[in-house]
Amino acid sequence: MRHALVLSCLALCACGTTRLPTHYVPPEEAAWYKLPHELPTEGRKTLSGPMVTAIQLAMDDFLPRQTRPHWDATPQEICLYQRQSYDVHAAPLGEGVMLVRITTNPGACRWGREPVADMGSTYAVDIRNWRILAIQRP
C-alpha cells in the first residue's frame, strides 16, 4: 500500500509542469529604478492576448527555455541558443488560427562572418485549443 502511494505521488509530480524561475535584480539594485506612469508612445507595440500566447507556444517549441548549448559550443552556436537572437512575426490566418514565423535576426550571431542562414520556422497555431497545427521548417 505504501509503495502504491509513493508511486502515485511520483506520477502526479511527473505530470505537472515545471516552472522556470523568474530572475529579479536584488532589492537594493531595484530601489533606484522608477517605472513611468505611462508607457512611452514612441516604439510602443500592442499585441493581442491570443497573438502573444501563440508566439509563446511556438517559441517554447522552437527553443524551449531550458535548452542549453552543448559543452563545446562555439560563440556563434551559443548565440543561437538565445531567444533574443530571433525575430518573430505573427498574423491571424482565418478563423481560430494564428501564423507565427520565427527567423534569425540578421544582426545576431555574426562575429565578422556572413549572417547565419535562416534557422527559423513557421507555425500554424490553433488559438481556440492552444495546439500547434503545423510547422514548416526551411
Score class of each variant (00 low, 15 high):
64 P>F: 01
30 A>P: 08
76 Q>N: 10
83 R>F: 05
90 A>H: 04
131 R>E: 06
41 T>R: 14
100 V>L: 09
133 L>M: 04
31 A>Q: 12
26 P>C: 12
101 R>A: 13
92 P>T: 08
41 T>M: 12
118 D>Y: 05
136 Q>K: 15
106 P>T: 06
89 H>G: 15
91 A>K: 13
113 R>S: 12
47 L>V: 07
85 S>E: 04
114 E>Y: 14
28 E>M: 13
61 D>I: 08
8 S>T: 13
122 T>W: 03
80 L>D: 01
86 Y>V: 07
24 Y>E: 11
55 I>H: 06
109 C>T: 02
130 W>P: 06
20 L>G: 10
23 H>L: 07
118 D>K: 10
117 A>N: 09
51 M>P: 10
124 A>P: 03
29 E>W: 13
54 A>T: 01
28 E>Y: 07
121 S>I: 11
129 N>K: 09
103 T>L: 14
3 H>Q: 09
102 I>M: 00
40 P>Y: 02
102 I>R: 00
6 V>R: 09
87 D>M: 08
38 E>L: 09
109 C>I: 00
26 P>R: 13
131 R>F: 04
76 Q>S: 05
124 A>L: 05
125 V>W: 02
39 L>M: 10
8 S>K: 08
14 A>Y: 12
42 E>C: 11
16 G>Q: 12
110 R>C: 07
28 E>S: 10
63 L>A: 00
18 T>I: 14
13 C>D: 09
121 S>Y: 08
1 M>L: 11
131 R>S: 06
7 L>K: 05
114 E>C: 11
52 V>Q: 06
34 K>L: 12
48 S>K: 10
134 A>F: 07
6 V>Q: 05
60 D>W: 04
134 A>E: 15
97 V>C: 06
12 L>Q: 05
82 Q>M: 10
91 A>L: 08
92 P>L: 08
56 Q>P: 03
39 L>V: 10
65 R>A: 06
51 M>E: 15
61 D>R: 02
21 P>V: 01
92 P>Y: 15
53 T>D: 06
28 E>G: 07
138 P>G: 05
92 P>K: 12
15 C>L: 08
11 A>P: 04
54 A>W: 02
21 P>G: 01
117 A>L: 07
126 D>M: 00
53 T>S: 10
110 R>Y: 09
49 G>K: 11
20 L>W: 01
129 N>I: 11
16 G>M: 07
121 S>V: 14
135 I>D: 03
94 G>Y: 04
103 T>G: 02
60 D>M: 05
46 T>H: 09
82 Q>C: 11
64 P>Q: 02
55 I>E: 03
123 Y>C: 00
59 M>K: 01
97 V>N: 07
127 I>R: 13
34 K>F: 07
116 V>G: 00
114 E>F: 14
1 M>Q: 13
112 G>R: 03
83 R>S: 03
127 I>T: 07
15 C>K: 12
42 E>P: 07
47 L>S: 14
87 D>N: 06
13 C>V: 13
132 I>Q: 00
5 L>W: 11
13 C>I: 13
48 S>Y: 09
51 M>N: 10
105 N>F: 12
15 C>M: 12
118 D>R: 05
138 P>E: 02
